[in-house]
Simulated scan of single mutants.
Amino acid sequence: MTGSAPDLAADIEVAEVEQAGGPSAPATSQPNLDGSEPVRSDQDHSPASAVASSRQRIVDLEQEGEIAADYLEALLDIVDMDGDLDLDVEGERAVVAVVGDGLDLLVGTRGETLEALQELTRLAVLQKTGVRSRLMLDVGGHRARRRAELRDLAAEVAERVKAAARPEKLKPMTPFERKVVHDLIATIDGVVSESEGEEPQRRVVVLPAS
């Protein structure tokens, strides 16, 4: 039996809604042309959300520092060495400093023992959190002193390179030392820097800017 006019009108409305992707046919997200996932329209990009995310990041970094401190305290007990632990957050990384006298054994030649200890500490954090850490470790103020020395060295080398208009290679350095030099050279007009070689002989080369 043919339905009444109101029933037919209702059927037409339902069909139109379904064709338009209404409630009975929920829209699905289609990938972008480059294959990436589309941005969800329900994501919260409000200032309040950004502040909350920033605060959570600081909490996470502070937790990294605390885990690292526990690991280092146990290590100091094993090697029978005394040292106070200072925890901080700088930028996007946790910073842990072992402060005290007679800690040269934990620094080693050219800071190589310190670099190895930093990697072990990062692994201890990874084991606890499941997240790769960029934690920075200093022992006995070694990094602070070395940073000042390297900045002076980089400035001197930059002036020589500009005057002679030819590259100059520095001695092999640790990743930390190379970064200090690269960061300083990046602030000086007329020169650029790059790294070459393989660890532990990897070094910085300062060149005239083209």
Results as ranks from 00 to 15, higher is better:
residue 1 M to E: 13
residue 2 T to D: 06
residue 2 T to W: 07
residue 3 G to A: 09
residue 4 S to T: 14
residue 5 A to H: 12
residue 6 P to F: 06
residue 8 L to Q: 02
residue 9 A to N: 08
residue 9 A to D: 13
residue 10 A to I: 08
residue 11 D to W: 14
residue 12 I to H: 14
residue 12 I to T: 12
residue 25 A to R: 09
residue 26 P to A: 13
residue 27 A to P: 12
residue 30 Q to M: 14
residue 32 N to Q: 11
residue 34 D to Q: 12
residue 35 G to Y: 05
residue 36 S to I: 11
residue 38 P to A: 09
residue 45 H to R: 13
residue 45 H to L: 15
residue 50 A to E: 09
residue 50 A to P: 01
residue 51 V to I: 06
residue 53 S to L: 11
residue 55 R to P: 00
residue 56 Q to P: 01
residue 56 Q to N: 07
residue 57 R to E: 11
residue 57 R to S: 12
residue 58 I to M: 09
residue 60 D to M: 08
residue 60 D to C: 06
residue 62 E to H: 12
residue 62 E to K: 14
residue 64 E to Y: 10
residue 64 E to F: 09
residue 65 G to C: 03
residue 66 E to C: 00
residue 66 E to R: 05
residue 67 I to A: 00
residue 68 A to E: 00
residue 68 A to W: 02
residue 71 Y to G: 02
residue 71 Y to T: 02
residue 74 A to G: 05
residue 75 L to G: 03
residue 75 L to M: 14
residue 76 L to H: 04
residue 78 I to C: 05
residue 79 V to E: 04
residue 80 D to R: 13
residue 80 D to L: 06
residue 83 G to K: 02
residue 86 D to H: 14
residue 88 D to P: 02
residue 89 V to R: 05
residue 90 E to V: 14
residue 91 G to K: 10
residue 92 E to V: 12
residue 95 V to P: 03
residue 96 V to T: 05
residue 97 A to D: 07
residue 98 V to F: 01
residue 99 V to D: 09
residue 103 L to V: 12
residue 106 L to M: 11
residue 107 V to E: 00
residue 110 R to H: 13
residue 111 G to D: 02
residue 114 L to F: 12
residue 115 E to Y: 04
residue 115 E to L: 05
residue 116 A to F: 04
residue 117 L to C: 09
residue 119 E to W: 14
residue 122 R to I: 00
residue 123 L to F: 08
residue 124 A to V: 05
residue 127 Q to A: 15
residue 128 K to V: 14
residue 129 T to F: 11
residue 132 R to Q: 15
residue 133 S to W: 09
residue 136 M to D: 03
residue 141 G to S: 07
residue 141 G to C: 06
residue 142 H to Y: 15
residue 142 H to L: 10
residue 142 H to S: 10
residue 144 A to D: 10
residue 147 R to M: 05
residue 150 L to D: 00
residue 151 R to F: 01
residue 151 R to M: 10
residue 152 D to T: 15
residue 152 D to L: 13
residue 153 L to Q: 07
residue 156 E to Q: 15
residue 156 E to W: 06
residue 156 E to I: 10
residue 159 E to C: 04
residue 161 V to C: 02
residue 161 V to W: 02
residue 164 A to V: 02
residue 167 P to Y: 01
residue 168 E to F: 04
residue 172 P to A: 08
residue 174 T to W: 01
residue 176 F to S: 04
residue 180 V to E: 00
residue 180 V to R: 00
residue 181 V to S: 02
residue 182 H to G: 08
residue 182 H to I: 09
residue 183 D to E: 12
residue 184 L to Y: 08
residue 186 A to E: 03
residue 190 G to W: 08
residue 194 E to W: 08
residue 194 E to A: 14
residue 199 E to C: 04
residue 201 Q to R: 15
residue 201 Q to W: 11
residue 202 R to P: 01
residue 204 V to Q: 01
